[in-house]
Simulated assay, not measured.
Amino acid sequence: MPRPFGFTYAHRPDGTVTITHQGRAAGTLRGERAAKFLGEVESGDAQLVMARWTGAYKHGNERAARQHPRNRR
């Protein structure tokens, strides 16, 4: 499965975490959720964790896209 890329995050001094995807804001986390996110991102694959937290993960069209003639190998 190809890995999503282009995600970054910024941890601000007030505890807020902002996740961006290719330069655009994809999500903002505060408080307990921000702390949980930071724990996950440090212990796993950061790109996959950010994709999951922003909801940009497994939209259901992966199988159909794989079968498209442009994507066949």
Rank of each mutant, 00 (worst) to 15 (best):
R33H: 13
W53I: 03
F7M: 00
T18G: 02
P2R: 05
E42F: 02
R63I: 15
L38T: 03
F37R: 06
R52G: 08
G15F: 03
A25W: 00
G15H: 07
Q47A: 03
D14R: 02
R30H: 12
N61H: 14
D45I: 10
V17F: 02
G23S: 10
R52K: 15
A26S: 03
K58Y: 13
R66P: 05
R24Q: 07
T8C: 09
G31Y: 03
N71C: 11
G31P: 06
G27M: 10
G31R: 03
A56R: 14
N61C: 12
R66Q: 14
R3Y: 08
D45F: 01
A26Y: 03
G60S: 03
E32V: 14
A35K: 15
S43M: 04
Y57T: 04
T28Y: 06
H21C: 09
D14M: 00
A56Y: 11
G31Q: 08
A65L: 15
A34D: 06
E62Q: 11
S43R: 13
R73Q: 13
R63F: 15
G15T: 02
A34N: 06
N61R: 14
T8A: 11
D14W: 01
Q67C: 04
V49L: 04
D45P: 01
Q22K: 05
E40Y: 12
F7K: 02
R3V: 10
A35R: 15
R70Y: 15
G55T: 11
A10I: 13
Q67E: 14
M50V: 01
G23W: 07
A34Y: 07
F7Q: 02
G23P: 07
T16E: 13
R73G: 15
F37W: 06
P69R: 10
I19D: 05
D45Y: 00
A46D: 10
R33S: 15
A26V: 03
R70G: 09
T54E: 04
F5E: 09
K36I: 13
K36E: 15
A56F: 10
N71K: 09
L48T: 08
H21M: 04
H21W: 10
V41T: 06
A46L: 04
A10N: 08
L38W: 04
L48A: 00
T20Q: 11
Y57Q: 05
R12H: 12
K36C: 11
V17G: 05
A10K: 09
G27N: 06
L48C: 00
H59R: 07
A65Q: 12
A10L: 13
A64Q: 12
P4V: 02
H21R: 11
E42Y: 01
A35N: 11
K36T: 14
Y9F: 15
A26N: 03
A35F: 03
Q67H: 08
P13K: 04
A35E: 14
E62I: 00
A56C: 02
D45A: 05
D14E: 03
M1K: 07
F37M: 09
R33Q: 14
I19H: 05
